[in-house]
Nucleic acid binder design. Structure first.
Length: 106
DNA sequence: AACCTGACTTCGG
DNA sequence: TCCGAAGCCAGGT
């Protein structure tokens, strides 16, 4: 749990700017493990609320929400929409517009 | 240590 | 475009 890997993932996700989204794979790469996309999802699933992580800005490579439950997907959709991220008719995000470039701000 | 599971990704049909 | 199989990682049993 308290591994450096997790901390790194949390660090990275915390850097995703408002109005942008990132994929699990992208985060895995930035964390130093290009093929640990699934582990990233795991980390998020186990992430403590007190971290105040913008988990909703993390979506699958297909541009859709990967949450297992309908309610969760709706919430994520709503949160992103409130930040200005638009979804197309198929419920997918336009990466050309909203994909995070991976650069930390500040 | 082996096996299963999951907020993933990629490739082929 | 959609579906299924295979590959990868960390955790839990």
């Amino acid at each position: 749990m308290t591994s450096e890997f997790y901390k790194k993932i949390y660090e990275i996700i915390a850097q995703i700017p408002t109005g942008k989204v990132a994929t699990y794979g992208q985060i895995a790469i930035l964390a130093g493990k290009p093929h640990a996309a699934r582990a990233v999802g795991w980390a998020l699933n186990q992430s403590p609320p007190e971290r105040d992580l913008p988990w909703h800005r993390v979506i699958s490579a297909t541009g859709r929400s990967s949450l297992p439950e309908e309610a969760g997907r709706r919430l994520q959709h709503a949160l992103l929409r409130s930040e200005g991220v638009q979804f197309d008719a198929n419920g997918r995000v336009n990466f050309d517009k909203y994909l995070w470039n991976g650069k930390a701000r500040r």
